[in-house]
Amino acid sequence: MSFEVISNFIAAFFTLSIFSFLYKDNPFYKFAEAVFIGVSMGYAIPLIYQDTFIPFVYRPIFVEYKFLILIPALTGSLYIFRFSKNLGWLSRYPIAFSMGIVGMGVPLSMHSYVLVQMRSAMLPVDNINTALIFIGTVTILLYFFFSKEHKGVYGKVTNIGIWFMMVGFGASFGYTVMARISLLIGRIQFLLGDWLGLMK
């Protein structure tokens, strides 16, 4: 029996074990769930050791003698003190450093997520698409203005905003249904094709 056949059998067993939850909770499902978590962690730990610790910590310090690396390495190790009640405060230093890195992205994020988006919302209203963008943007912004009661003409305008949002949520939900069905299709393709060989 080839390795591929054995691995397909194992994968099929775990797929069916997970699917069995659709009928009701059972030991097969629980077993498959636990194995998945264990395997994921078991795979990640040596990979991170090999591709992170060795090239970024061990090799620079112990092979290339770049002792400056000790500073970030030791700072990073302070994370472990999260588990200590008395020394937990030490873990705030690497967290503060990470927050600083996040701060580095603020100007670029402002550009991508705010300025460019605003510029694209300020197009000349010369076709149906830009007209819809204009009406949608304005009415939704007005909907989220809570200092005025949504009544009368103002209420009708904000209602249009709700309609726009509902269309957006509908599109998102439709896509979500498609995604979930796709995942099921992927598994059934595996069971029928790779495992049972019924698909051509």
């Binding site: 059934i188 029928l192 019924l198 698909m199």
Partner: peptide, 11 residues
């Protein structure tokens, strides 16, 4: 029913 709706078109 959903499972059958997927299995039949695949086969």
């Amino acid at each position: 029913v959903v499972a059958l709706a997927i299995i039949i078109p695949l086969l």
